[in-house]
Computed example of a mutant assay.
Amino acid sequence: MRKIIFLFSLTFIIFNTQAQKLPENQLGTWYMYNGSHKLSEKYSLKTMAHFRYFETASEFQQEIYRLGLNYKFNPKTNVTLGMSYATGDLAYDTSSANLYEYRFYEDLNLNSKWGVFNARHRFRFEQRFIHKNINIDQFQNWIRYDLNVSYPLSETWSVYAFNEIFLNLNKSKRFVQNWTGAGFIHKLNNNIKLKAGYFQIKLPSKVLKRLQFGIILNTDFSKKTS
């Protein structure tokens, strides 16, 4: 009887240890920088750098850098053309193929008011040039749709919620992932905001949980007129 109990306990410990090593059982973290730099009444530069981890600050998953040129048609409609570079680790807690990719992207952003809420629709088209290991290269077309809704709590605090869906047009099963989350934004001054939130990444076979901590920088280099 003792042997059976011992074997059962050992099996449970081994299973529990292995389960804890699965990425869906970890609370990962994204550290984010996003910037908007106004060049003129119509044009601005969009910049971004994200550092993403399977855990709080370890088990690297991905880093991505983005640069784009934004053109504003009016307060409700603007577009962005840009490119990004990303490198990542495909597996958690084990070695995996080296991955990096270059992306070209085109955004259509639509802003609107839903009563007291601010809503933004972003349609993103991506052309991804993916390189794995030494000799594996792929080209993929992706479409993303992001709905972001925010509500001002005060002059310096606001709350937001978002949902973004990803489709891969080069696969028969086009659904890739879906992001859903919420958080808070604190305005320090006219140039800097801090962001903190939580979201889930739904994949075809699992769900990942992530914290977000970010800084938002807005600058204005356009000419001031009296």
Rank of each mutant, 00 (worst) to 15 (best):
E41P: 09
N163C: 07
P152N: 13
E164V: 04
I143M: 08
T17L: 12
V207D: 14
L167M: 14
G88V: 00
K223T: 05
A97V: 06
L39Q: 11
F51A: 02
T80V: 12
S95G: 04
N78I: 00
Y100Q: 11
R174S: 13
F73S: 04
Q200I: 15
L217E: 08
F139K: 04
K173P: 05
G197Q: 10
I215N: 05
G35W: 00
L81D: 04
L188H: 03
T77W: 05
Y33C: 10
N70D: 06
I136W: 07
K21R: 12
L39T: 06
D146H: 10
N135P: 08
T156W: 08
Q20K: 08
E155L: 04
Y65G: 04
T77N: 12
A97G: 11
N148S: 03
N34A: 08
F12S: 11
I4Q: 03
L22D: 09
Y151H: 01
D146C: 01
W142C: 00
T29M: 14
L67D: 02
Q212P: 01
A57V: 12
N118G: 01
I165E: 06
E55P: 03
K38C: 06
F51H: 02
G115S: 09
S95V: 07
Y31A: 12
Y92S: 08
F73V: 08
I143T: 00
Q138F: 15
I215H: 10
A19I: 10
Y31R: 13
L45K: 02
D107C: 02
S222Y: 04
T56W: 15
S205L: 15
Y160K: 03
F12I: 13
N135G: 10
T180L: 15
